[in-house]
Design a protein around this nucleic acid. Structure first.
Lengths: 156, 156
DNA sequence: CGTTTTGTTCAGTCTTGACCGAACCAAAAA
DNA sequence: TTTTTGGTTCGGTCAAGACTGAACAAAACG
């Protein structure tokens, strides 16, 4: 298999993975491209070219990736265009903390459900309490875990 | 606000939440209904009635919830129908472990990407390495965290 | 046996939203 | 000023998949 088709395959696979994760296929392709391209920085038009996608799709999805912090813009004096690269300052800790918010929302549903029940002793109430206790635990432990990461990565 | 519309609101909200999480709205409604109903067990037809949904939709989504382990079937001697309830043996630990697999798949992409690169020293390679190290860390730490939960919940 | 109850499955519909093309805009260049 | 470049935005299209309804099974009942 040629190197390029293997990379192309990787890019498409990443698109499909992102789709499974609930994000757009195109954002996965953009990130996949940035992961395997040999260019140290990539312009907007190079993306539309490489991925054979419309400017609007690249624009929208690239903006999302910038927003999340996966990708960083890079401008050069005397050059009009903006280049893009995988963000060297990517903060995985912050990213995961954000994702943790969904856990919190789910937990709120459990607690809310509990307040809506007539009985607080039957099976459903018990179930909700256990669910909420587990989520409480996760929400409590996760920051400590991320802190351990901080310590560990600081030493390298 | 009447109690029932508040519960109905909760059920719909749970549907919308599940949708955000990438599962079907209907599965969220079913689970939401089981969370707030006062019945200790609910039959198939009660669900179609309560949620005003088709038998096929209930059938499909209920099967999914049974599969994940959120819901448990309950049969009664001398009765034809199957009843359903929030599973008293719900294993949150196992559930979270399953979800962790997505992290593993993402991590594999990072590692795969790294092998496809010409250079292992440039920014993208560095980015991939850091990403993978972080995911390695999570995958390594999570089981210990779940074990702590085990210990903690065992004492109650 | 038929009939009724309980649920599954499958073809079709309808909605959502990702993506495209074209119009548009801002800034630099000419 | 006019033109070119780089990118955004907006309306429309198209595909995926969630949900429906109807046809189908299986098992209990009469």
């Amino acid at each position: 298999m040629s190197l390029d088709t293997e990379r192309d395959r990787f890019i498409e696979d990443n698109g499909l993975l992102f789709e499974r994760l609930g994000v757009t296929r195109m954002s996965g392709r953009i990130l996949g491209y940035l992961m395997v391209t040999d260019k140290e920085k990539v312009s907007f038009s190079e993306m539309t070219e490489a991925l054979q996608a419309s400017k609007s799709s690249i624009s929208t999805n690239l903006k999302m990736l910038l927003q999340i912090g996966f990708v960083k813009p890079l401008t050069i004096p005397g050059e009009r265009k903006t280049y893009y690269m995988l963000s060297p300052e990517m903060d995985w800790k912050a990213y995961f903390s954000e994702r943790l918010e969904m856990i919190g929302i789910m937990n709120n549903m459990f607690k809310k459900g509990l307040t809506l029940r007539s009985s607080t002793k039957d099976n459903a109430a018990q179930w909700l309490r256990e669910a909420s206790e587990f989520y409480d635990f996760i929400i409590e432990e996760f920051p400590a875990m991320l802190k351990r990461w901080e310590e560990k990565s600081k030493t390298t």
